[in-house]
């Protein structure tokens, strides 16, 4: 399989880029793929804590690109899966410590050893964004069903196109089916209509994400997490498998059935 460099971006902060990177990386590794996740948020690194690997960091991305260590020395092996690695961001430098050219060289070097190279992009559209997209073949934009997030996603899609990344796909994160049903949250078709890009997947709002982040164990490892299940399905789509879209509806309970019967009776 040809290796792929995918950047996970959003423009707006706090919509779930890092959570998405951690879960997709872990899900792909569960499928037996060789995966490296790169945290490019220099100065504000977080992918290490979401993955529960913060105690294993010796070198970081800045050490690797500046030749203070070999690239392989900076890679942290995951504690759960053999094929899963993390390249952490530096915490004491700023975004200018790495150049787009260096990023491109580094991701190209990593292609030799990995099936998937997932680049976790920082918020914003400045140097950190430019670094993160420099070596990418494809981009995944994460957006939540809010005006501010969708607006920023639109801007990011424009910037990605200008940089030659035209096959961008969208993940709608933190959707709440109850709010959608009562008309207080934009639904999937509203957002797709506005942004006019292909949908890669939908992830429901799920308290299990907070719990899994507390523990440093990605939600895809939990069988009961609905968000985890959604991420596992998205990971399968990334490998080229056709997977039906996640249904927003909660499993039908007795009350729903009862309501339906009442409607039918009228």
């Amino acid at each position: 399989m040809k290796s792929r460099v995918i950047v996970i971006t959003s423009g707006k902060g706090g919509v779930g880029k890092t959570t998405t990177t951690a879960n997709l990386g872990t899900a792909l590794a569960m499928m037996g793929k060789k995966v490296i996740m790169i945290d490019t948020d220099i100065g504000l690194r977080n992918l290490d804590v979401v993955m529960g690997l913060e105690n294993r960091i010796v070198f970081d991305i800045v050490d690797a690109v500046n030749g203070h260590c070999k690239l392989k020395q900076a890679l942290i092996k995951d504690k759960r899966f053999d094929g899963l690695y993390l390249l952490p961001a530096a915490q004491t430098k700023d975004k200018t410590a790495v150049s787009p050219h260096q990023m491109k060289n580094m991701t190209n070097e990593l292609r030799k050893d990995f099936d998937f190279i997932l680049v976790d992009c920082p918020a914003g559209i400045e140097q950190g964004f430019k670094n993160a997209i420099a070596g990418a073949d494809k981009a995944v934009v994460v957006a939540t069903p809010e005006v501010s997030s969708v607006r920023d996603a639109d801007r990011i899609i424009g910037l990605l196109e200008a940089a030659g990344l035209t096959e961008t796909k969208l993940i709608i994160n933190r959707i709440r089916s109850k709010m959608v049903k009562r008309g207080d949250m934009m639904d999937i078709s509203d957002i797709i209509d506005i942004l006019a890009i292909e949908l890669l997947g939908v992830v429901p709002e799920d308290e299990a994400i907070v719990v899994s982040t507390n523990r440093g164990e990605p939600a895809v490892l939990e069988n009961v997490s609905r968000a985890g299940a959604a991420y596992r399905r998205i990971a399968r789509r990334l490998t080229g498998e056709e997977v039906p879209m996640y249904s927003l509806d909660d499993p039908e309970n007795i009350m729903d059935k009862f309501k339906k019967m009442l409607k039918l009776a009228r």
Partner: peptide, 23 residues
């Protein structure tokens, strides 16, 4: 109107401006 319709309409307007001024 349901608030999502308001959101959609506001987005539509703001994006016309954003897209025009972005290029």
């Amino acid at each position: 109107a349901p608030s999502k319709d308001i959101a959609r309409e506001r987005l539509r307007l703001v994006l016309v401006h954003d897209r025009a001024s972005a290029s």
